[in-house]
């Protein structure tokens, strides 16, 4: 973190001393990295199958519950805020907590849209009607946006307070919400 050379104030487009504005490039970066993280998270979760293959053979139900309630929230919540970290490391903007929350929201949105697209693609043989129905069902629940908004607030608080425990607290809450939601949907759906 230290030792890097952040760009001068002019490069950020803000007047010296003025509070920084949230610009399109910040939103695009957070959303784009969130979306890319969505694709990589799916790979990461698939990689988990290899070491736990024996469990899948012994108890497939427990294996799938473990994957969606523990592995998925840990992996996904950890990768979604990478875009926010890139913004911080590139420009060191003195954003307000609300601005960090907005960045978190769009990172979650990017992740959710990529995940939805991948799920739609995986059932593409079922036809457009079913694919759109699945998309509609998934868009009913803004769980990725909710969780990454919390993580964004935690990250913003970390940049201001210099205390990483703030970030750890908020990301842990996000992981718990995500895990509980996945558990509920798995059990009932």
């Amino acid at each position: 973190m230290e030792g890097t050379s952040p760009p001068p104030a002019q490069a950020t487009g803000d007047a010296p001393g003025a509070p920084p504005k949230l610009r399109a490039r910040h939103v695009a970066l957070a959303m784009g990295v969130g979306a890319i993280a969505g694709a990589f998270a799916m790979l990461g979760e698939t990689g988990y199958i290899v070491p736990s293959f024996a469990l899948a053979l012994i108890d497939p139900l427990f294996f799938s519950l473990l994957t969606v309630t523990i592995v998925a929230p840990l992996v996904e919540e950890a990768v979604k805020p990478i875009g926010l970290m890139v913004v911080w490391h590139e420009e060191r903007p003195d954003f307000s907590l609300v601005q960090w929350a907005v960045l978190g929201f769009v990172a979650g949105l990017g992740f959710a849209l990529m995940e939805d697209a991948l799920y739609m693609w995986s059932i593409s043989s079922w036809g457009w009607g079913t694919m759109l129905m699945l998309l509609g069902t998934r868009l009913l629940f803004p769980v990725h946006m909710l969780c990454t908004t919390l993580t964004g607030v935690g990250y913003g608080l970390w940049t201001k307070s210099k205390d990483p425990w703030h970030f750890i607290f908020f990301i842990a809450v996000a992981m718990c919400i995500h895990g509980f939601f996945n558990f509920a949907v798995s059990v009932v759906g």
Partner: peptide, 10 residues
């Protein structure tokens, strides 16, 4: 602040 809002240095 962890970085200067004026010169952006750590």
């Amino acid at each position: 602040s962890r970085a200067c809002p004026h010169c952006r240095k750590d």
